[in-house]
Amino acid sequence: MKNARARGRLKRAARLVAATCFALFCVWVSTFTVDAADEGAILYGVHCSSCHGTDLKGSANVPSLQHAGGASVDFYLTTGRMPLADIEPGGTQAYHSRPILDTHQIAALEAYVDANVEHALPIPKVRLDSSQLSRGRQLFENNCEACHGAAAEGATAGYQWTALSLSAATPTQIGEAIRIGPGVMPRFTSAQLSDNDIGAVATYVRYLATEPQTYGGTVMDYLGPAAEGAVGGLIGVGFLFWVVYFTGTKADGRRVHERD
């Protein structure tokens, strides 16, 4: 049975060699690195190219990215607007939701898009400054509240478009939106709003979000006189109706008074 033992030993040796080779292969593969631009290209291919095209020029219903750049990529990806959850033809608004990609992947995509478009728009640096609160409010009233509402609570912008609530927006996202003008929002150049101005606006918007202006009770989602009318009617007049209904008819005195 010498043969059989030799065969067994050979088998074990072969297994050992195979395992070693696999381990070495794994170590070798694990040393592979993808540089940021390559990772960006891969992520772009997976998440973006089916709509925006491999040339980043978009198509009939899809915007070109040739004038986008880092600010747009960061805004759309960190707010979860892109990649689109439901792709509908006809260009409905991309609503914010939970971002799919992590910050590292978003940075890689920014690098890739920046490197492959004509006019890259960098991410603005937004500095909050509490001494600018009052000026930020004035700028917000002049430029933002017509669509976003006096409390940045959001309002309809007409034709399927909504100017969204800004309560969840980060300072950077506020700055990016001002510079790129997502959807129907106009874009504001640095000639219209300087970087300092953007910082002031972001200061006021964050102030509204973090310190709710709810003096004197519930503000009813800032729905204004429409909600006030409903509350005044239902609670105020409604309660008094209840009072007169239960006091008015019950005590029937049946005194008779002849008219003059």
């Binding site: 409390a151 429409a226 009617g233």
Partner: peptide, 28 residues
């Protein structure tokens, strides 16, 4: 009056001819 804010003018800000916020209604 104690529990429901009505007409929060501090949010609306002062009237300036070039500004108006959306949405806007009068009292009912």
């Amino acid at each position: 009056g104690g529990f429901f804010t009505i007409n929060p003018i501090w949010i609306y800000g002062p009237y300036e001819g070039w500004n108006i916020a959306s949405p806007a209604q009068p009292d009912w």
